[in-house]
Design a protein around this nucleic acid. Structure first.
Length: 336
DNA sequence: CTTCTCACA
DNA sequence: TGTGAGTA
């Protein structure tokens, strides 16, 4: 099959196909006499895959890698690339959303003032820029992919940061009081220990983690859980999807500013009337131990939720370990 | 109809 | 990440 026929079949131009070939995504045989390209069924299948993945906005170099791995290791690898892409798109989408909000505020500002409020405008721009950089600023300084194979042993040891681990997970479940067929999300799920506990209550669980290896183990243990690559700062879900959102032993990996963003994200994906539980190492304000600790401060987190019309309940399991439970009101502006 | 290259956004 | 023009 010649190039034009192939191009027509796929709804692209011959020019584009040659371009993909130059980029190394494709190498159709050439006829001996005239050097015309000749497309086999294999080539066509490959082109179809490329076109499909382009539609998901994968870059050509990503597609190239995905195709190579797809041939060697099968479909599982492709799934990884698609999940990566989903996570990246979600993150871009959040940034666009933020840009829209900033623009709205600029419009409002310009409309209100008679002279051009340059300083104020610039302030808005800067705030937006900082927010963007914080979102992009997540780094896995611990290499959780490497930690994944031994993670469950470590939490079972029940010491250090993971003291009272099981107890904390059980209490999160009791606080949330999962009902049949509810949708739940576990963020920073690791190997799915917390998310797994909700399966017995017949909930549909989704689990997010930034570590591919952790998620692989999670799927082995609990095939029913829907796993997604992603992190706190750009949850790969649309708004108001979940009846409850939980997280355990993960939140403290964020910096203070990132924690604010993470709370907004949890709030975004939670349905009205939904519940949130955060089990993690926190600083207790009463003790005044904040200066020595980089942990989130329990009271600050509580206030964040209270200011947004949540009913909040805080309990403390040991020196550091707390569980913050927050209940989102059904109608946030009722009565006003 | 096809090839390739150079330039352009 | 593609496209358009010009060539053979």
């Amino acid at each position: 099959m010649n190039i034009k026929e192939a191009a027509d079949k796929l709804g692209i131009t011959p020019r584009t196909i040659r371009f993909y070939e130059k980029k190394g995504l494709l190498s159709p045989a050439k006829q001996q006499n005239n050097l015309y390209r000749s497309f086999s069924e294999q080539d066509l299948w490959r082109l179809q895959t490329i076109v499909a993945l382009r539609e998901a906005h994968l870059s050509l170099s990503d597609i190239k890698q995905a195709l190579e791995k797809l041939e060697r290791n099968g479909v599982e690898e492709l799934r990884y690339y698609l999940e990566m892409q989903r996570s990246a798109l979600m993150s871009e989408w959040l940034q666009l959303k933020q840009a829209v909000e900033t623009t709205d505020r600029m419009i409002e500002l310009v409309q209100r003032e008679r002279t051009l409020p340059l300083e104020h405008l610039f302030g808005l721009a800067n705030a937006s820029k900082q927010l963007r950089e914080q979102r992009a600023g997540w780094k896995d300084r611990w290499d959780f992919n490497r930690l994944a194979p031994t993670h469950d042993e470590r939490v079972a040891a029940n010491e250090g940061d993971y003291a009272d681990y099981e107890d904390a997970l059980e209490r999160v479940v009791r606080l949330i009081r999962p009902q049949q067929n509810e949708r739940g999300l576990d963020i920073g799920t690791g190997t799915g220990n917390l998310a797994g506990k909700f399966l017995t209550a017949s909930c549909h669980m989704s689990a997010v983690d930034q570590s591919r290896e952790m998620l692989r183990l999670c799927r082995e243990k609990h095939p029913e859980i829907e796993t997604r690559l992603g992190n706190f700062l750009a949850l790969p879900f649309l708004r108001e999807q979940f009846d409850f959102v939980v997280t355990s032993f993960a939140f403290h990996h964020l910096t203070g500013n990132q924690q604010q963003l993470a709370l907004e994200e949890m709030d975004r994906v939670l349905k009205p009337g939904g519940r949130i539980a955060i089990a993690d190492l926190m600083a207790s304000a009463e003790e005044g131990d904040r200066p020595t600790s980089s942990y989130p401060e329990a009271r600050t987190l509580s206030h964040w939720f209270e200011n947004r019309n949540y009913f909040v309940q805080l309990c403390r399991l040991n020196e550091r370990l707390h569980i913050l439970y927050a209940d989102k009101k059904e109608h946030p502006y009722a009565g006003s």
